[in-house]
Design a protein around this nucleic acid. Structure first.
Lengths: 199, 199
DNA sequence: GTCTATAATGGGATAGAC
DNA sequence: GTCTATCCCATTATAGAC
């Protein structure tokens, strides 16, 4: 066993916990399962983290951070705004389809966090950050498409983020690709009715 | 203790389980907590249900059934379609606000069910039923507003249901009423752009 | 048929050896 | 600082008394 800093160990345990939770669910991520996955002895957990809840705090912050970055799309010349919206949404959707388990985990962790007094605020802050990221993203898209939005961007951001959240949740349950894509395109159509050429 | 049929006992236990889960979360709904809530001895659970999972099967079916019914709204004379859509959406939203814990429980149970081999199908069937109920509801609303939808109703149903699901989830986390209502009204506006007067 | 007592397992946390 | 052995509690399920 190589000697490591406490920080490195913490990271190792958080990553192991995420793997276990992705594979078996949050409820089955026991301290023993986590240290087993990390290849560490049971005691390691309790001198890296004060409690299991502290570990979960780290897990939530890390897993939700990963969902924050939006994929970038470079606009093709001559593409309509609608085409660009579709390209962005499909890029977003591809990421969901690439790692469904990870996204399922974020929903599980959110529900878990809401039930733990010490963790509920973490979930709230994360959703606040999602919203801000969506606002930024909408503004970036508007620049790239050379349009402006005809409704308040924060409202549109929450609207769109809620739709995408629900879409993802539904797809994680039934994995119905055609239905998900049809709804996604309906959203792209909607977005184009909310965009006008810049003054 | 009054003598009861096995069916009545099962119902009693399912209702007790729902109360515990609403109050403390799915993870804390142990067999002991459930029989305690029901005022029954521990043994009662295992001769009414083969296992705890059987009990949870009953819980899921019951709690998700409750979410199926849409509130009815009688259209006011001279109201625009948009006003009617808003009225329907606000009626839906009022129900969420009346029993947030119950809705939170449905999300928890969905995540739980997806992790249990024997229960995943139940969740899938429930979402299929939600979709069908939404399709019916959209058709009813179209009749009441004397309009027809300009996009395929099943796609619109999934789109709208996903948005409302995401909206609810987000609100359960941050309880931000103004933001939720703004997004809800944005959806009402969107719906009115998808409605045209009947031929 | 009903309930008590208990089995068998697995959980988080910790004391103390190294 | 690292890990083993163990504590103590909670869990589901069941055997068997009533």
């Amino acid at each position: 066993m190589v000697r490591q800093s406490a920080d490195a160990r913490r990271e190792q345990l958080v990553e192991a916990a995420i793997r276990v939770m992705i594979r078996d669910g949050v409820a089955r991520a026991t301290t023993r399962a986590v240290v087993g996955e990390a290849g560490l002895p049971l005691g390691a957990l309790h001198y890296c983290f004060r409690s299991k809840q502290q570990l979960l705090h780290g897990v939530i912050e890390r897993i939700m951070l990963r969902s924050l970055a939006f994929p970038l799309v470079t606009p093709t010349d001559g593409a309509s705004p609608r085409d660009l919206f579709r390209a962005f949404l499909h890029a977003y959707w591809d990421r969901i389809r690439e790692s469904p388990e990870e996204h399922q985990l974020t929903y599980e962790l959110t529900q878990y966090a809401l039930r733990e007094p010490g963790l509920a605020d973490v979930a709230r802050r994360q959703y606040q950050q999602y919203l801000e990221a969506n606002i930024d993203h909408l503004r970036t898209v508007a620049q790239l498409a050379d349009i402006r939005w005809t409704m308040e961007v924060p409202v549109l951001a929450r609207y769109g983020m809620n739709f995408l959240d629900g879409l993802t949740l539904n797809w994680l349950i039934d994995r119905d690709d055609p239905q998900a894509l049809a709804a996604l395109d309906a959203y792209a159509d909607h977005l184009s009715t909310l965009a006008v050429a810049r003054a």
